[in-house]
């Protein structure tokens, strides 16, 4: 019963999203530009450096970037969205409804997030295929990669939810969004694989939860390894739990304040 309720919400979110045809074309255009830049940049690098850099060929590098880009950009501006609801107090309206706000947000955004992920990935894959060709993927690893990608999107959501709720105290959701986004860009490995970092920073970045949003799932997809897969999925679940608890605790605290102040 519970599940049916949330899956219905997710379907509505996808339905809403399909109306925004223009939005889709525009985000495709943007992704196209970004990936075009990446392809130019790494083509030059591989042309002057070597065939293989830290285990990545040019093809693997571009496919890696297609995936990190697709993961990170898919949820849209969720932090500002939640931040606005928290600040204006409209979050209180959800208290009366028969669902938990953060779960409600999760299913409604995941519906459109997954859809946008697929679309971004298709555009990126077409570009990658055109410029650097395909890469080899073993068939049986695909479900595990998809699972890890889904968990990455979930972890991404948990981060954004926690930070979005923090807007209640910090008053400025856009600032928080900028900082989180850039952290993922650099230390989450969206711009380049963490393996290219200096050794000390590589190990620090890999230990931080941000790497489980972008680096690890994309790395798995282009260089699959069973042992790594198991530990990545495990760690993703651990971090999702940790951040969910944090988001939930922050939310509880914030709701208490809102109800005491009368919204």
């Amino acid at each position: 019963m519970e599940l049916a309720k949330y899956s219905a919400l997710a379907r509505i979110s996808i339905g809403n999203n399909l109306v925004y045809v223009k939005d889709f074309f525009m985000s495709s255009l943007f992704i196209g530009i970004i990936l075009f830049i990446f392809i130019q940049l790494w083509t030059v690098v591989y042309g002057t450096e070597a065939e293989v850099i830290e285990g990545f060929t040019l093809g693997m590098m571009i496919w890696y970037l297609v995936l990190t880009e697709s993961i990170v950009t898919s949820p849209g501006r969720l932090i500002e969205d939640i931040g606005a609801e928290v600040q204006s107090g409209t979050i209180a309206q959800h208290l009366l409804k028969p669902y938990h706000y953060l779960l409600f947000k999760y299913v409604t955004t995941m519906g459109s997030t997954v859809l946008r992920f697929v679309m971004t990935f298709i555009i990126g894959a077409l570009l990658a295929f055109f410029f650097v060709g395909g890469i080899k993927v073993t068939l049986w690893s695909v479900p595990i990669i998809i699972l890890s990608l889904f968990l990455a999107l979930t972890l991404h959501y948990a981060f954004m939810a926690a930070i979005g709720v923090m807007a209640f105290w910090l008053e400025d959701a856009e600032s928080l969004y900028l900082l989180y986004q850039k952290t993922i860009f650099v230390f989450g490995g969206m711009f380049m694989p963490l393996d290219i970092f200096p050794a000390w920073l590589e190990s620090v970045s890999k230990a931080l939860p941000f790497s489980y949003v972008a680096y690890y799932p994309a790395h798995l997809a282009v260089r699959f390894d069973v042992n790594e897969a198991i530990s990545v999925v495990g760690m993703q679940i651990v971090w999702i739990s940790v951040l969910s608890v944090i988001a939930w605790a922050l939310y509880r605290f914030c709701v208490k304040r809102i109800t005491i102040n009368g919204g």
Binding site: L18, V19, Y20, V21, K22, F25
Partner: peptide, 9 residues
Amino acid sequence: GVSGSIKSF
């Protein structure tokens, strides 16, 4: 619907 949106785009 979707087709209408695409067409009008």
